[in-house]
């Protein structure tokens, strides 16, 4: 008997995307990271329910999928805010004032690094080099880059997010 997968767990668009991703490689398992991305893109994070669902899809033990997902920093295994603010604090950004940017955001949002605002809107984390060192300091919010940051610029960016 084949394990029946509940397609409704994700939207039709995501389901179709997953089918496409899983057909791209000589070995299906290669699509695992891509499918983790696709599910996270829809749900915002990967809880145990999502991990189990993906495990079933790949016919892998959930512990194996969890072990892979937890290796990569981009996979959120816990709920994060609607906007995930990722400030680079690596060397080129650090020497260009990244710490001031972090402190400014902490103060503005009233949270510390690693925390989420009570309304669930923002989560603040610090990250390693984003490949924007020439336009330091830099950050990402969800999948978008913001570069050459100043506290004023950060205010404008955060205020524009609904």
């Amino acid at each position: 008997m084949r394990a029946v997968i509940d397609k409704e767990f994700v939207s039709e668009a995501t389901w179709n995307k997953i089918q496409d991703l899983m057909s791209r490689y000589p070995d299906r398992r290669s699509a695992l990271l891509q499918v983790l991305h696709a599910v996270q893109d829809e749900k915002g994070y990967l809880d145990m329910e999502a991990i189990k669902w993906i495990a079933k899809l790949f016919k892998l033990p959930p512990a194996e999928v969890y072990s892979v997902a937890s290796f990569y920093t981009m996979f959120n295994l816990k709920k994060v805010g609607k906007y995930l603010i990722q400030v680079c604090t690596n060397i080129s950004c650090m020497i260009n004032g990244a710490e001031d940017i972090v402190r400014h955001i902490e103060k503005k949002l009233g949270i510390k690094v690693g925390e989420t605002t009570p309304d669930g809107k923002f989560t603040l984390i610090t990250v390693e080099c984003l490949g924007s060192c020439g336009k330091a300091p830099a950050m990402m919010i969800n999948k978008d880059y913001y570069e050459n940051l100043t506290p004023e610029k950060v205010d404008a960016i955060l205020d524009s997010l609904k």
Partner: peptide
């Protein structure tokens, strides 16, 4: 990829590419 510097090392990269 999904955020892991070590995956730039070529054999780690291959493992990552294999899921």
């Amino acid at each position: 990829g999904a955020g892991a510097y070590v995956c730039g090392e070529e054999t780690a990269l291959l493992n990552s590419l294999e899921g």
